[in-house]
Amino acid sequence: MTVLGLVLLFAGACFVLIGSIGVIRLPDFYTRAHAASKPDTLGLVLSMAGLAIIQGGDLSSIKLLLIVAFVAIANPAATHALGRSAVRSGLEPWTVGQGAKR
């Protein structure tokens, strides 16, 4: 069981790292928000699930699952709020024609 939990934790850490790299590499706010919402949320969910498995079914693992449920709903909502305010303030998205902009 501990090995399974550590494998999940490792996968979560990898996704979290990919999310960070994406936030640095991608060209504009909208694409960066993709990197901030998807790999990051999955990384956190996998990590918390792995910790919950290592912890082994006591009250702490229930709380870890509560964090998972909260973040899985809250993270997309926060990204959506940022994206909406970006659209309403008229931030233009990057398109392929525009070349690299870091």
Partner: peptide, 10 residues
Amino acid sequence: VSVIGTKTII
């Protein structure tokens, strides 16, 4: 900032 916050939770 929000990405950093998620990582801080872990």
